[in-house]
Amino acid sequence: MRNYIIKRLIYSIIIAWGILTITFILLRVGPTSPVDRYILNIAARGQDVESVKQAIEARYGLNKPITEQYFSYMANLLQGNWGWSFSASMPVLELIGSHWIYSFQLILLATIFAIILGVGLGMLAAVKQNTKFDYAASIFSFIGISIPGFWLGLMLILVFAVYLGVFKTYYDTNYPIWSLENLKQLILPVMALGIGELAGYVRYTRSAMLDNLRKEFVTTARAKGLPERTVIGKHVLRNAILPLVTIIMFDLGSVVFGGAYLTEIVFGIPGLGQVSFNAIFANDYAVVVAVTLIGTFLVLFINLATDLLYTYLDPRIRYE
């Protein structure tokens, strides 16, 4: 088991290194320089752009060959130095440190919302198979899967913020993270991000439950005289959860990378999604690489966690 984890960790590091390299190359062979945005201000003040640009590039080593830059970046990274953000004029780590919480709270709340409601509704739909409730849940999940999250966000803003005025149209960073106001202004983003996930979970939970409801061990459990709530909540759910874990964890990866970024943009939440988009537009490569790397590690960590959770949940699986 320990060997397996070590093997997986080494493997994760190799994958992360591959992704880091691809991102780095993509950014550094691009047509624009990280200092372009920076020197616009200087140009506006009428100073000599070219000499300033060269001075900055020399200071940060941007004029060296790309391989040399790559190795020095890697060396810095290994020492815990994530580089300098030109667009934000601060160390990358500091920039990320001040923004990650906005993404984290959004993803965490949306995931909890989606898992609790989605798995609950899916279980109910499976138990009440072919009833009106089941059909309603099925239609709802089809709609939820098909609705683009960012458009749902716009519509929520349109209805609840613009017309009903219940919520503000933009995220206000002045509220402390742990305040009730902050929680309230997260309701719409969490819905926009979570409903698509929720709908998927309803569908997967329902079919996983149905798969197991017809299994023989369910009849055994009933024959033992167990109450229905134990039969469903213990014997069926415990088996249905196995495929669900994989799907939910996999989904979490796509939420981290896709949905959350767009939701942040629609609602103006200054999380890592916005940070990385701004960084891409400013060709602020250190930030982009760092955010990509963090995201990659997160997904790799989730994958490893899934596997380990699986060995705990399914005694039939053992990794060597």
Binding site: I19, L26, L27, G253, V256, F257, G258, Y261, T296, L300
Partner: peptide, 17 residues
């Protein structure tokens, strides 16, 4: 590796470049 790559970020990145 391709699966772990942040798909949307990659998309934005390449389209930007």
């Amino acid at each position: 590796v391709m699966m772990t790559f942040p798909f949307f970020l990659l998309l934005v990145l390449i389209v930007f470049i």
